[in-house]
Each structure stands twice: as structure tokens, then as C-alpha cells.
Design a protein around this nucleic acid. Structure first.
Length: 294
RNA sequence: GGUCAGGUAGCUCAGUCGGUAGAGCGCCGGUCUGAAAAACCGGAGGUCGACGGAUCGACGCCGUCCCUGACCA
């Protein structure tokens, strides 16, 4: 089963209670909780909060690494295959990571050298190359998005596959139709308008718990991906003297709310998620979620 | 009280020689297959401090007033 929704929706606590109820184990689908040491700012559940429930896909990479979705999928599938848990509870707010885990997404290979070569290439030239080997790529790839164009050309040079050929496969069609590879039932939770104050409150708690020190100690080793995490990027900016810590937290608050909206638009189009009405009381929330899973 | 600078989108500010306004951020919405808490796309929003004046025409010129900041008394 899956428990999804935007950040600060109380998923963590609820998922632990669900796991206790079903004797299950938790698989996190969170793009930033994968990094070791990024604890406070990612709202990673502490050992105490986990209450003995096994949590997977958390702390599986160093903050200096670039832990891609493809790696996330590979590792997640491995761990799922090995798992002996009677019930698996998938929870988190990273939509693509969720789909990578349960849906038939097949990631084409990558090559760091080729990648950096393409990234250094004039974007018009890349678009020209792309449209040359696949004229109808225009309708599939966002040509204004440099990263997408680079990736499409990279895949072509590495495998000969074009955006059209990849989009035309049966699995690609299944992905579009939300046909899962691993069956599940999913429930969505969303505090709606109450989310803003939950975010403000949570950030204040993070600050009180030492988020600034956490970021400071991570700053020498944090990598390109991890440093983009909301809360971290703003405080890193403050640490390098750009802005005050107060300002950093104000920005972190708006960016967290922005993130929540993006997470919503991602999950909202997934027809498999059943959204339940929000209850502020955790007990009531759990009860409604259990009903929904019945 | 005086001098100077300034009052333009929610915020910070652009606006060439007068032809009724733009950007970044925010806000709203969308896309999404190896950076996804990323990257990208679209949209809404302004009686240009107020009132008067000269002009075919003013955010822009002239006058008065209001507000803000700095400095001088």
C-alpha cells in the first residue's frame, strides 16, 4: 500500500502507525531523505520515531553523491525483492521516485563524459541534432528545456533509441495510462489550507533542533543534488554570507510551500490515489486512512 | 522649518528625445522516464502618490499638496 501527499502532511507519523497496525515495513519515496546526514531539514524520522519499524531507501547515499532516480529504482526494486515483510508501506512526497518504484519506468543508460560534452554544446545545435534523427521529437521532448534535450541526444547516441521509439513502446503506454508494475492501493493526504502554518511551525522546530548546525557541518561535502534541498540551499546561502539566517528561513518557508504545490500537481493526476479528507487529529486521520485501505 | 533624493504590479526596482508601462521575485496553473526538493512552459495582476495646469497627447514637463529617507538648522 502507499501513503502519498505533499510535504508536511503528517505522512511520516501516520506511516509508522500503519506499519505497526499491519506489521509492515516502510519504503520511503523521498528524493532527499536518501542522503545520510540530512536529517533535520528533510524531516527524516528519527530512530525513536520509527518505533522499531524497518525503514528502507533512507540513508542510502552520501550527500556528496548524485543519487539519481534510476539508482533509486534499481535499489528499491532490489530491496523489495529481498523483503520478507508481509505488508509494504510506500510513503513519501517525491512523485517520480514513487513511480520509478512501482511503475514500469525503464531508464536508458547514461555516460558522464558524453553528458558533460553535450551540456557544453550550444543548445540550438542539440535541438537540431535531435530533430534531425527524430523530427517528431518536437511533440515529445520539451525543446525549451535544455536538460531534456541533452538527455534525449545522450540516449540516442548511446543506444540509437529516439524519443519517438521510446514513447511508442507498450511499457511507455502503460506508464502513460498509470498501469502499475507492482500492484498497490494508494491513499493521499493533504492538509490543504492548513499546510502553510504546518510548514511554518515545522521550520521553526527544525531551526530550534539545530538545522543551521546540520547544514554547516554538511557544507564541505554536500553535492550538486543534495544542496538543492529546500532548507539546505537557503541556509547554505546564508552561511556563505549572502543573507541573514532569518531571511534564509523566510525563503525556506516559501520554497517549502512551493514544493508542496508541485507535489500536489504531480500526485493529482495519478488516478490511482484515493484522497481522503483531512483531519488534524492523528487518530482520526489514521482511522480514515485505514477505512480507505479496506 | 530648509535643502536634496524618492513615491510605478504583492515585494525590489527598470522605463532612452512626451505617444496611456516592463523585469526579477512572489502568486495562480501546467509539463515531467538517470539533477525531480531539479529543470522547463503558460497566466493573472498596475486610475505610474493626490489634485490642478500647459500640450493633439504625460509615468515623463510646470505648480500645489501628501508620504518616505538622508542631510542642514
Amino acid at each position: 500500500m502507499a501513503l502519498l501527499g505533499p510535504t508536511a502532511a503528517g505522512k511520516t507519523e501516520t506511516s509508522v502507525r500503519l506499519a505497526e497496525h499491519f506489521q509492515g515495513e516502510i519504503f520511503s519515496v523521498d528524493s532527499m531523505q536518501v542522503y545520510r546526514g540530512m536529517d533535520i531539514g528533510t524531516a527524516k524520522p528519527t530512530m525513536l520515531e520509527r518505533r522499531g519499524i524497518p525503514h528502507h531507501l533512507i540513508d542510502v547515499a552520501d550527500p556528496g553523491e548524485e543519487f539519481s532516480v534510476a539508482r533509486f529504482r534499481r535499489l528499491g526494486r532490489e530491496l523489495l525483492a529481498e523483503s520478507t515483510a508481509s505488508v509494504v508501506i510506500v510513503t513519501g512526497g517525491s512523485g517520480l521516485h514513487f513511480r520509478a518504484l512501482v511503475d514500469p519506468l525503464s531508464f536508458a543508460p547514461t555516460d558522464p563524459d558524453l553528458r558533460s560534452e553535450l551540456e557544453a554544446t550550444e543548445s540550438d545545435a542539440l535541438v537540431e541534432e535531435l530533430l534531425h534523427f527524430d523530427p517528431s521529437a518536437r511533440t515529445i521532448v520539451d525543446l525549451a528545456n535544455q536538460r531534456r534535450v541533452v538527455r534525449a541526444v545522450e540516449i540516442y547516441r548511446l543506444t540509437g533509441e529516439t524519443p519517438s521509439s521510446r514513447a511508442g513502446t507498450a511499457v511507455a503506454e502503460d506508464v502513460r495510462r498509470y498501469v502499475p508494475e507492482i500492484e498497490f492501493t494508494a491513499v493521499g493526504v493533504d492538509p490543504g489550507g492548513a499546510l502553510e502554518e504546518r510548514v511554518d511551525l515545522r521550520l521553526a522546530r527544525m531551526r530550534a533542533s539545530g538545522l543551521i548546525d546540520e547544514v554547516r557541518s554538511l557544507s564541505p561535502v554536500i553535492g550538486r543534488n543534495a544542496r538543492n534541498a529546500v532548507g539546505y540551499k537557503e541556509i547554505l546561502e546564508a552561511l556563505s554570507g549572502g543573507v541573514s539566517f532569518d531571511e534564509a528561513f523566510v525563503r525556506a518557508a516559501t520554497n517549502t510551500k512551493k514544493l508542496a504545490r508541485k507535489q500536489r500537481t504531480w500526485f493529482q493526476r495519478d488516478p490511482r490515489i484515493r484522497w481522503i479528507p483531512w483531519f488534524d487529529d492523528p487518530d482520526q486521520r489514521l482511522r480514515r486512512i485505514l477505512e480507505a485501505f479496506d
